[in-house]
Design a protein around this nucleic acid. Structure first.
Length: 578
RNA sequence: AGCUGGAUGGUGUAGUGGUAACACAACUGACUCUGGAUCAGUAUUCGAGGGUUCGAAUCCUUCUCCGGCUGCCA
């Protein structure tokens, strides 16, 4: 697939705007109408560089960049790197790669919360001077105790009423490394009796030694998210600060800091935090913690294991940016928690690949078939369409000989009703070739296993030939034995066997892993054209599914990942019978 | 319990006082040299009660249910 953007207009109108409507767009429409922030729209995607991005992040990325794009605005990429203990440059790089791969461009607006450490520090001093912040010596345990509970008010810290001078002095000494990690913190002085626990004098600076990926060893104190985020937004001129629902309770704090800090509303405008529900998908987990556990315990091959819902995993699986963007468009945005059927994601890639992917013959479980009345040494190069959805993509030639492979599943000695494939005395068409009739079944003498099928063919029934119009029930894909190439095929299914692995948080979710999530077929054969398959090139293996050449695939060791199977009504029927 | 958010077909979203829509999924049927694709069709619904109104998914009210919040994480 040369260009992943070729159909972008499909989901947008003539003005290049998304047709999708959601409550955030409604807010923005209203804000523009009212001239809020001079009718600017400026969003940001603010990942913490402490892990790989997943499809849930893609939702946020599409939302933030999409909203900006659809409203004549811009979107920043900002790393929320206020905790040197957790953050790494490796993640900074992978995140940029993934956002770019998805098709979004932050131009020159790549920022880091660390860029604002100096300003954040100065604002903190202002807060102290205003009597809005104080240095607190309570230990973490004491602080927890003083915080109160969900139903009981907290108690004020005995350090709450220190003088401005003392606070200034102590904060300065915190910065200079005079105290050990965790010895003191700077807290906002708000309300220890607030029903919203986030307002009970939250910590805004902690002492934490550790080398920061951006600022090195310059700082010994680091700002907390709640403090750094609204100010970072404000300094970048963000107008709509979109985050997930769990930050809802933090919004009053977000607003409190903006109210207290003289960042210059007239210059930058005033950002507004808006929360939406994060994405959940059936048959998978989305929390970074759980994904990390899968990787670290070797339950998957890595962050880019094709079964992972990570962007890198989906990429290796063969998903396209277009399909992922289309998915994010279709799932919508709302505030209620929900779980999207992974079938919708699969639909998005099938739909794209149905119209785009070149068709190819591949036999997953080969069964030898000999056409007894076909000349032994003859090779016919038969013409077949590259993509029936796109006749302009032309045709190619595939070799036909006396000995071919068919799919083992396409033969049934005692066919059940509605089995339209090959069985004794039955006729079937070989795609782009001839109609054949099954005459004999050869078994292994010892095991009794079917090892070969013998058929005859009717030369007149060749595709395009005089009797080509003859009706038969089924059409099979096939491969000339002499020409077929061995290939390793990796068949993937859902990572979990449970629809909702998060349902019971007490349960060990690793027990719910689907034992069949990866099946490796090493006896598969593919048609000669696939020798040239480039990395990440996608194909439809006819009657089977969509496959992509894996990163590890080489001409002498072909490897394909199944992106998604074709819809399989026969499989469904068969499952019902059982 | 304190604060806070949510509830529209199986799933996800739209609808913002004027006969409830779109997508996916499911099921029928047609067509097919991919049991793919395509085409045609089917089903079920505004969490519950009360009120306002000529008219309510939309407004008011009571209730029920589900979620988030007690890191010096983000």
């Amino acid at each position: 697939m040369a260009n992943d953007d070729y159909k972008l207009e499909d989901i947008t109108n003539e003005a290049g705007r998304s047709l999708a409507s959601n409550f955030i767009q409604n807010i923005i429409t209203e804000d523009i109408k009212n001239g809020k922030n001079d009718s600017r729209v400026h969003t940001r995607f603010p990942p913490e560089p402490n892990g790989y991005l997943h499809i849930g992040h893609a939702k946020s990325i599409c939302l933030n960049f999409g909203l900006a794009n659809n409203n004549g605005g811009i979107c920043n990429l900002r790393f929320d790197d206020t905790n040197p203990a957790k953050e790494e440059i490796e993640y900074v790089d992978s995140i940029q790669e993934d956002v770019r791969w998805l098709g979004f461009d932050w131009e020159d607006r790549l920022y880091y919360a660390a860029d604002y450490f100096d300003k954040l520090y100065e604002f903190a001093i202002d807060l102290i001077k205003q009597g809005d912040a104080y240095v607190c010596d309570l230990s973490p345990e004491e602080m927890k105790e003083f915080r109160g509970t969900l139903t009981e008010a907290g108690k004020e810290s005995p350090y709450r009423n220190r003088t401005v001078e003392e606070n200034l002095d102590l904060f300065d000494r915190m910065k200079n490394g005079e105290f050990p990690d965790g010895a003191r913190v700077l807290r906002a002085k708000i309300d220890m009796a607030a029903g919203n626990i986030n307002l009970r004098d939250p910590v805004i600076y902690r002492i934490q030694r550790g080398t920061h990926h951006r600022t090195g060893d310059k700082w010994l104190i680091y700002p907390m998210y709640d403090y750094a985020h609204p100010i970072s937004d404000a300094l970048e001129g963000i107008t709509h600060s979109i985050c997930t629902m769990e930050f809802e309770d933090h919004r009053p704090l977000y607003d409190w800091f903006l109210d207290k800090i003289a960042y210059g509303v007239e210059k930058y405008g005033r950002p507004q935090q808006i929360e939406f529900a994060r994405l959940n998908l059936t048959y998978t987990v989305m929390s970074k913690r759980k994904l990390r556990l899968l990787v670290e315990n070797g339950l998957v091959a890595g962050w880019d294991d094709p079964r992972m819902p990570t962007i890198s995993g989906l990429r290796r699986r063969g998903y396209t940016p277009y399909a992922i963007r289309g998915f994010c468009e279709r799932i919508g945005v709302a505030k209620r928690n929900s779980r999207v059927d992974i079938a919708l994601l699969e639909h998005c890639i099938r739909e794209e690949l149905n119209s785009e992917a070149t068709r190819a013959m591949a036999v997953l479980n080969p069964l030898k078939l000999v056409i007894t009345n076909y000349p032994a040494d003859q090779v016919e190069w038969l013409e077949t369409e590259n993509n029936p959805e796109k006749p302009e993509r032309g045709t190619r030639l595939i070799p036909f000989t006396r000995e071919i492979y068919i799919e083992a599943d396409d033969f049934m000695e005692n066919p059940v009703k509605k089995f339209f494939r090959l069985s004794p005395d039955k006729e079937v068409r070989l795609k782009s070739a001839y109609i054949i009739k099954c005459e004999e079944v050869i078994r292994d003498e010892e095991s009794g296993e079917i090892i070969e099928i013998r058929c005859t063919y009717d030369p007149e029934t060749k595709s395009g030939g005089p009797k080509a119009g003859k009706k038969v029930k089924g059409t099979l894909h096939w491969l000339s034995v002499r020409h077929a190439l061995p290939a390793e095929l990796r068949l993937y299914e859902h990572l979990f066997k449970e629809e909702n692995p998060d349902e019971d948080e007490e349960a060990d979710f690793t027990n719910m892993l689907n034992p069949n999530s990866l099946m490796i077929l090493d006896k598969a054969r593919v048609e000669p054209m696939l020798q040239e398959a480039g990395k990440e090139e996608r194909f439809q293996f006819m009657r089977q599914g969509y496959f992509v050449a894996d990163l590890e695939s080489k001409p002498d060791k072909l490897v394909f990942n199944r992106i998604v199977s074709l819809r399989d009504t026969w499989g469904k029927l068969r499952a019902q019978k059982e």
